[in-house]
Design a protein around this nucleic acid. Structure first.
Lengths: 337, 337
DNA sequence: TTGAAAGCGGTACCAA
DNA sequence: TTGGTACCGCTTTCAA
């Protein structure tokens, strides 16, 4: 069915080895033979069987990406940035979604290891580091993105989450807010880091943390607009009421804004709002949303480059951490000054 | 490095064949042997080398997906739906983005064919059907999604684009609009179908097409909010001014709404707006956007099921077309009644 | 410059 | 119930 090296060799009366060498641009082939082979390859529309090649070389020229949710704009952008880098180098991209389920993630990781991907890029939903030990056993290099793990010396690419929290909170303070609440994220490095940055910024500006001003939505990323809405309703009942809110991510902030506006209050005059992630439609909302840009596509690109460098260097190198500086994007939702 | 069948066989003093049979649940193995083998497999954390298996069986248990833009919510949702189906059946998903570039798409398709994917799912940016002929030569089953090609008898899963256009336009008419404009999409089946549905609905309700009322943005999907904005500005200069606009997709509609609101007009009182695609943040916009739902995730699922059924059935079946009925989602941007 | 032989890690077939 | 042998399509090594 599919054309094989053997077919071309037979047609031309040369050996399989010769054809294989032409395929890989070996120098020890006469120009004449090379031309004949290339011509025939083109005629027959030959495509090398990469599974066969992978089997003998031990390299699949593929990289696996596992994320909690493909539809989340952040991960979609990561995937895009990653695929761009891989394509340049002739690698393919295997993608799996864990749906925030650690068990499912484990299965997908196993599948990718069975496929002998050359490297893995993972935004993990795990609570333990066991999965990563298993990856390490296989000697498959991996790069964590977005979410870090305490006690795991692994390659990591992501935004500096403490800086995200500090940048957002400082911005609200500079806009004249003095009672700043935080709708926090889950118990992961992202949520914890942003919370810590929020606290640090308050302290730095001499603002005391107010009771009940940090609330958590009930749900994970894919439902965070609902949870942001609910969390904001709780914040609006407080006395005194917050005059600024830093939200863990943009969907949360969108839900929060909806709650504020529906309650007859104004954004940013009564309550200023800032999110994080800078999703690409943030500017088109009911009130354009200020946000902290976390350079999603750069994360994909950097993770890709790092992963490929690990593949190239045979020798085990010690894990590297790439921490990107977040950027402040001011839009109407926080512009009071 | 990685554990092989051979290692397990040696450890247990049985043959490779026996171990292989246990791996695949063959019945002709004694319970005792089976247990010993399974035990050892677990101990060593054995994972079959799928590249090797693919080579001998001719089946890779992988499916390739090629889309124009991973970040576009429609394609992200398609990918999610597809991956869900594939995971259930033990298949992996290879994803590539063509960035709307036919040449790049061709390269990615070639790469996937070289990897011997069992089937392909493609939202194509091609202008010609040549690529598909090449896929057919390899006997790799493929399913087109979203965009159809005239003169190509291929499997297709997508929304009924004429119905999309007709549904949106009829809705605006029912809301009392009588001068309905259309910001149309590109010269692809999606854009053309929606335009045709728009015309049909106008005719059906006895409304004459007005000169200049159909305009085209200059750009493709990923920039369509800008192009929607620009196109709307042109529409607003017309005399008489439109009182309703059906936009090719939601980003276009978001750009159009911005132009209307920035011009001091009201949505929907002065101009009603409806988009298509029903992106998941449509409800959170400055004015919540009415839209036509095209069941993005169903498209992924249906395409996946169709692709797998093609893989299973050895015999060539004649191409099937799955046309999904669009759904109307009314929000504030078109609610005048 | 060319090619024969071995082997990558599995599976299929058939004999023991 | 078990296993020997051939082979999937390609690369590697080494001899001609």
């Amino acid at each position: 069915m599919a054309v094989r090296l053997k077919d071309i060799a037979r047609d031309l009366g040369v050996s399989v080895v010769t054809v294989s060498k032409v395929l890989r641009n070996h120098s020890d082939i006469s120009d004449e033979t090379r031309d004949r082979v290339l011509k025939r390859m083109k005629e027959l529309n030959y495509r090398p069987n990469l599974a066969a090649r992978a089997l003998v070389t031990g390299r699949s020229f593929s990289v696996g990406l596992v994320v909690p949710d493909l539809v989340h704009p952040f991960f979609a952008e990561v995937a895009k940035g990653l695929s761009k880098i891989l394509r340049k180098k002739g690698y393919s991209l295997l993608i799996a979604s864990s749906e925030e389920d650690p068990e499912l993630e484990q299965q997908e990781l196993d599948m990718m290891l069975a496929r002998r991907v050359d490297a893995l890029v993972v935004a993990s939903a795990q609570w333990t580091v066991e999965s990563f030990r298993r990856i390490e056993e296989q000697k498959t290099p991996y790069v964590l993105i977005d979410r870090q793990f305490a006690g795991l010396a692994a390659n990591f690419v992501g935004v500096d989450d403490e800086a995200v929290g500090a940048l957002a909170t400082s911005h609200l303070i500079e806009q004249g807010c003095s009672r700043i609440a935080h709708i926090r994220g889950p118990e992961l490095s992202t949520g914890l880091g942003r919370l810590e940055g929020y606290r640090r910024a308050l302290a730095k500006h001499g603002l005391a943390p107010l009771p009940g001003y940090v609330v958590m939505g009930r749900s994970v990323d894919n439902l965070s607009d609902t949870s942001g809405h609910e969390a904001m309703l709780r914040l609006l009942e407080l006395q005194p009421r917050p005059d600024g809110v830093f939200c863990y991510n943009d969907p949360t902030a969108m839900g929060a804004m909806k709650a504020i506006l529906d309650g007859g209050l104004r954004v940013p005059e009564d309550v200023a709002v800032i999110g994080a992630g800078n999703v690409n439609y943030a500017g088109l909302l009911r009130v354009p949303l200020s946000s902290i840009d976390q350079h999603s596509d750069s994360i994909g690109e950097r993770a890709g480059k790092l992963a490929l460098s690990l593949v190239e260097s045979k020798t085990a190198v010690r894990p590297r951490t790439v921490l990107l500086d977040p950027g402040l994007v001011v839009r109407a939702s926080s512009a009071r000054a």
